[in-house]
Amino acid sequence: MTKLTRRQLLAGTAGTLLLQSCSKQQAASVVTNPNVAKPLVAVVKAAGYTQELYDTVRRILVDQGLNVKGKRVVLKPNLVEFDRNTAINTHPVLVHATLEAFRSLGAADVRIAEGPGHRRNTLDLADAAGYFEAIPGFEDLFTDLNLDEISKHSLRNPFSKLRDVYLPNTILGADLVVSMPKMKTHHWVGATLSMKNFFGIVPGGVYGWPKNVLHWSGLHECIVDLARVPGRTFAIADGIVGMEGNGPIQGSPKKCGVIVAGRVLEAVDATCSRIMGIDPNKVVYLNAPDCPHYNDEASITQTGESPRSVRTDFQLIKEFADLRLA
């Protein structure tokens, strides 16, 4: 029997407990299907938010073999607060480098889209975060997902209590949605990475600020459900400077010096976790039952640096001290 922790209680749903207890039983027994190609995850060193990123990101996309010719691509960064001096938001230079890289690969349309969870004035937030300065024509390229046109979307075999959710047409109509999280610790779920970043696709115009319905429907479960919404995804995690401690808002900047990228979000997040010194086997949403798990390094084809060689332990709050990777 899994011990009931205060955090689980605060998360507020029995579903969380169910997911965790199931996942702990299943995690050890998951065997990657040998007939299915291992996901490719790139770990690339990047010293800072410099011009070199433009070449770095382009090479990552080429190495990953992404065919985006004529496609509609949506970049989904993590924009949280009015702040360009800490490590709360995905850095705008990385987002611009990614935008340029997709354009150079022939994408028909590349948009940037986000729906922050707390602050309503998204364009002002983006301005304060340096997006207008770093990305020419930003306002024309950007969609505020909180206020976008929406459609009702039925979740397939949801883990959470959600059955239907109204979602932005910009996301539902994209050929490829690129999750661009900031690599951060998170005071409710341990780490916020490419899967959790999809909380930002839920429209505040319907669900409010914060999108509290996700907490009441099961936080971990909603992370799994929402990450499965877009038909085709890719992830580029900003781990150049992440956030440790009491993230995702009140933590401290943590230099890590990497970009982590790949097509399979679970594999990217498991890799990010290892780099942060977090055991992915203990991150609840990475262990959902009946979902592919990539918590074992051997289940991923790693390119670039090995996660071990760039491991930079992020400080964990005491409530998540047991997530530390051995």
Binding site: R6, G208, W209, N212, H215, W216
Partner: peptide, 19 residues
Amino acid sequence: TTTAEANEGWPWLPGTAAW
């Protein structure tokens, strides 16, 4: 737990907490 509220504000939508 400390998540209960004695005072009644209003939520963004039914079934959630007040903000």
